[in-house]
Amino acid sequence: MLQRAPDDALLQLQLRHGGDLALNHLVDARIDALPQPGAGQTLARWRVLAEVAAHDLSLVKLFEGHTDALAILAELGGAPETPAGASWGTWCAEPPDARVTLDAHESGRVRLTGTKAWCSGAAKVSHAVVSCWNAAGDPCLAAVAMDQPTVWVTENGWYAVGMAASGSVDVRFNRAVATPIGQPGDYVNRAGFWQGGAGIAACWFGGLLGIARMVQQRKGPKPDAHRLAHIGAIDVALTAAAAQLREAAAWIDEHPKDSAQRVALRARLVVEQAANEVIHHAGRAVGAGPLCRDPRFARAMADLPVFLRQSHAERDLAALGQFAANEQEEPSSWTL
């Protein structure tokens, strides 16, 4: 359980480290000791993610992966012995040109071989939860330590300016020793899969919250009507997204064992739409100055559009629409 407000803890860390925070700072300060998704304090978990994101989107990309790994290990078991202060990545993207295979090994261990893409923080984390495939073609999970000579962190796979600090590169395994987590198929079949997917929306929300805060700080002593209109549009977008996230967190806590796919898709899409609105209005509200002269504002405006593409865009809209189309009557979520 959180012992103090996340914004206070983050503020103290920022002051201590001159605002230049890293994943190990959050881990050492135990800010990663978040409530489990669906355990009654999902909103408190998301508030921490949002505050980290408001500070730095690349940092929250690593922090969310670390806390997601901890949640997976708690839910499925099979965690290896790890030293205090271990930092984790969660690398479960499955592009068709990068696949990791799992082979049985002695003493219940396994060996991983292949290339894993989109490995955020690969050069910084000490351990990772990795999706892989066994000999029967079943999807599996394994925990792997990164300090093995059979694990190579490449410099390939990331050329974008946005989210560059996340270090999301390819990692190659050559029979690296790992520990299996859960049973084949558990990763996507567990309740926490979509609960964690909804948590990504909290990270996006934190990104647009950080931008909105910087816009408000630059409103000037006497903002004109045009700037006020942009701030008003940002207020509308933020308020709608925050309400949707609160509703989603409450639903997850009330239905901890149920699939949260529909709830997660709706939350992600609402926040994505809000983020697009905030990006649109933020640049117009403050002009070119902060985009060119304020590194934090410029970085956030470059990072957020890239981070949002973790969404599957129209595919997610179609999946959400399918839920509504399958209902015999008007969806209850459409009524006040």
Rank of each mutant, 00 (worst) to 15 (best):
P184R: 04
N189A: 14
V161Y: 09
H127E: 13
P180V: 03
P184D: 04
G85F: 10
S107T: 11
W118S: 09
I200E: 04
G197R: 03
Q148D: 11
A104S: 15
G114D: 05
H105V: 04
N156M: 10
A191W: 11
A84S: 13
G162R: 01
A202E: 04
E81C: 07
P95Q: 00
W194Y: 06
Y159D: 15
S87D: 08
D97Q: 10
P80F: 01
C203L: 06
V169Y: 13
T115R: 06
N189T: 11
G85Q: 09
Q195C: 07
W91N: 10
T154G: 09
L102P: 07
V188K: 04
A160C: 12
S87Q: 13
G167M: 10
R109P: 11
A93C: 12
A145F: 01
W152L: 15
C203I: 05
A160D: 15
R99Y: 11
Q148A: 09
V129R: 02
T154S: 15
P180M: 00
G78I: 08
V161P: 10
Y187K: 11
V188C: 06
S126C: 10
V171Y: 00
Q148P: 12
W158F: 15
D103H: 12
P149T: 06
D97G: 06
C119M: 03
G162K: 02
D103I: 09
A165M: 13
A201D: 08
R111A: 11
D186Y: 02
T101I: 10
E81G: 12
W133T: 15
T101P: 10
A117N: 08
G197W: 09
W88I: 07
P180R: 00
G78T: 06
S87R: 07
V161I: 12
E155F: 09
G182F: 10
L73S: 02
A164V: 12
W152G: 05
A79G: 15
G89V: 07
A84W: 06
V129H: 02
A128T: 03
N156T: 11
P96A: 02
V161D: 13
W158Y: 14
G157Q: 07
G121Y: 03
A165E: 15
A178L: 04
Q195H: 14
T101G: 07
A122W: 03
L76E: 04
D103G: 10
D186I: 05
A135F: 05
A198S: 11
A84V: 12
R190E: 11
V100E: 02
C203M: 08
W91L: 11
P95D: 06
I200T: 10
A201W: 02
M146T: 07
A86K: 00
P139V: 05
P83M: 00
A178Y: 01
T115C: 11
Q195D: 13
S120H: 00
N189F: 05
G196A: 00
A142R: 01
A145L: 00
P139A: 06
G167W: 06
S87F: 05
N189W: 08
P180S: 02
R172V: 15
